[in-house]
């Protein structure tokens, strides 16, 4: 057991936690924006899968991780475009379309993977890390937090960019109003449909990027159903965060630690079924909800399509 708490083990554990947290963070931030604008985006799992598949294919054939990320984000946007068209523009039920998109992308990505790679699962070379000078020399923390791919730092920076967006900009206010009182936004002369479409497409880009990171950096390969509920976790994170991007970051890290613990335990040869450890983050959140559960502040018009002049 002494080896369990060695420096190397701890920093590997934390490194894994960050790697596992980034897709959740990106999905959570994306979902948060949709929800702020009043769109419950259940299709985010499908957007992540599209991102994971296209991201992998992009990186595999071009040999460039960045092109992969770009392709992943584009894949997410493509799915989000369907969602925006069906749920925002013509106002179909968001839960029906969201689940349908998730099911469809689960099937489609698995199908395409089958016809492209059959039963082989080619790997990408390990992602090259951007080492932050000085900080990465700190024991334990240095190798855990400051030797990641550049996109990890960008994702964390995005948290603060989002905070700025919601607090300080006109667009942030518009997004909030689109979710809380869309009619008021409409009266103010701002197109609700447009605002919500922006939110949904951004969600698609972020979720797609998260999926691409999951496949290209986290796993280094694509397997069908690789997201395994990460999108739904993103929905949970966004709802728990009550509109604050920083809380999404904390939540994602908490889930990341638990996910990383699962792998670490297996490596260390400790014989607890992985299912038990997988339950930990959910258990923690449920206990938090039971103890501190208050009425959370979801946007008033969440899930309700906006139709001008409708009562």
């Amino acid at each position: 057991m002494t080896g369990l708490f060695s420096e190397v083990f701890l920093s590997a554990l934390l490194f894994g936690a960050v790697t596992a947290a980034i897709p959740l963070l990106l999905a959570g931030l994306g979902e948060q924006m949709s929800e702020k604008a009043g769109v419950l985006n259940i299709g985010i799992e499908g957007m992540m899968l599209a991102g994971a598949y296209l991201g992998f294919v992009g990186a595999f054939y071009s040999g460039s991780l960045w092109l992969g990320f770009l392709a992943g984000a584009a894949g997410g946007v493509a799915v989000a475009l369907i969602m925006a068209l069906l749920c925002v523009r013509i106002g179909l039920n968001q839960i029906v379309i969201g689940i349908a998109l998730t099911l469809g992308l689960e099937g489609l990505t698995a199908l395409l993977h089958h016809f492209q790679f059959s039963r082989s699962y080619p790997r990408l070379p390990a992602a090259d890390a951007t080492v932050v000078p000085l900080l990465s020399d700190i024991p334990v923390i240095g190798p855990a937090f400051f030797k990641h791919h550049l996109i990890v730092y960008l994702a964390v920076a995005l948290v603060f960019a989002m905070t700025y967006l919601y607090r300080r900009t006109q667009l942030g206010l518009n997004l909030q109003a689109a979710g809380d009182k869309p009619a008021a936004l409409d009266v103010a002369g701002i197109d609700v449909i447009r605002t919500r479409t922006i939110a949904v497409l951004t969600t698609g880009a972020l979720a797609g990027l998260g999926g691409a990171y999951l496949a290209n950096v986290g796993a280094g390969l694509f397997i069908p159903f690789i997201t395994n509920g990460a999108g739904f976790l993103g929905i949970v994170l966004a709802m728990l965060a009550r509109g604050r991007p920083v809380w999404v970051l904390f939540g994602a890290l908490l889930f990341g630690v638990c996910l990383s613990l699962t792998t670490a335990m297996q490596v260390a040869g400790i014989n607890i079924p992985t299912d038990v450890i997988q339950m930990l983050p959910f258990l923690a959140v449920m206990i938090m909800l039971v103890l501190f559960g208050r009425r959370e502040s979801l946007p008033a018009a969440l899930g309700i399509p906006y139709e001008r002049g409708a009562r």
């Binding site: 349908a100 998109l101 099911l103 469809g104 992308l105 689960e106 099937g107 489609l108 698995a110 199908l111 089958h114 069908p224």
Partner: peptide
Amino acid sequence: PNHFTLVLVS
């Protein structure tokens, strides 16, 4: 692959 059923249902 059976996954096509998912696409069809969707």
